[in-house]
């Protein structure tokens, strides 16, 4: 076979290939197969899924999943409860004029903050309080927020002896799991931020009663810690503001 002929054949082959490719492209276009960059074949946040029966592309974790670094084994920090709670502990209760049960002792709640109480923590708490709590509990904790003025049952004020004497773990537990008519805010507010809110509630209480013996003590110590060191909560969940999406 001469060199010329081989080259000629190659040329034919190449032309045939290009022709086939062009035909193939036209055919796929005609069939409606296209990769549109505007709407790419991946899920954006909250995008509808045709694959899963319930239509959600954002899937729940399989039960029992623990993300790396999120074992949450610091019980006081993540539940506000003491380490070995007494299952038989009875809370003191009474019934008020409206027939509501009022709990006035909280035997299994921690009494000290499990993280250092600093000005940064309280400032963060003020910020979060005004987002999530103020709507009902009011700007100063009197229970007269805008949603209450619209008819939501009035929550108790923070400024009575019962709640002044309540341990910090109780406030944390209420935010985490809800209480009475209040839903759980655990999924809306990260644990570190919940403690910040508790610190701010304590600050609100102190502001009305500077002479009371309310103390903002912390087991993590210390109130004497430098603000810079304390700005980083030592617990693994870290601060909501620095938590970079991804696994929760």
């Amino acid at each position: 076979m001469s060199l010329n002929k081989r080259n000629e054949r190659r040329l034919y082959l190449r032309s045939a290939l290009i022709l086939a490719a062009v035909c193939g492209l036209l055919l796929t276009e005609a069939c409606g197969v296209r990769s549109d960059m505007q709407d790419q074949p991946r899920y954006d946040a909250y995008e509808k899924s045709d694959f899963f029966a319930d239509g959600r592309s954002s899937r729940d974790y399989p039960e029992g999943t623990v993300a790396r670094g999120h074992l949450e084994d610091n019980k006081a920090f993540f539940t506000g409860k003491i380490d070995n709670p007494d299952p038989n502990a009875q809370a003191a209760t009474s019934t008020d004029a409206n027939g509501n049960t009022v709990v006035s002792s909280f035997p299994n709640a921690v009494t000290e903050f499990p993280l250092p109480v600093t000005k940064e923590l309280i400032d963060r708490g003020e910020d979060r309080y005004k987002i999530y709590c103020m709507v009902c509990h009011g700007q100063f904790g009197d229970g007269d927020g805008m949603v209450v003025r619209r008819g939501f049952p009035k929550p108790p004020t923070y400024h009575d002896d019962r709640l002044r004497n309540a341990p910090v773990g109780h406030f944390f537990d209420v935010i985490t799991n809800g209480w009475g008519k209040m839903n759980s805010y655990g999924y809306q507010v990260q644990a570190a931020d919940r403690w910040a809110i508790v610190a701010y509630i304590r600050a609100l209480q102190l502001s009305r009663n500077p002479d009371s013996n309310l103390k903002m003590t912390s087991t993590a110590n210390s109130n004497t810690a430098t603000p810079a060191a304390a700005a980083k909560p030592q617990a693994p969940a870290a601060n909501g503001a620095t938590n970079k999406g991804g696994a929760k």
Partner: peptide
């Protein structure tokens, strides 16, 4: 941020779950 909770931390601002609506509308 009461409803769009993740706006400070993630790409998506976050759409509230129905539970967020029910925080108030279980009563109101």
């Amino acid at each position: 941020r009461y409803c769009h909770q993740t706006v400070e931390t993630t790409a998506s601002a976050g759409m509230p779950s129905t539970q967020t609506c029910m925080n108030c509308h279980s009563q109101l």
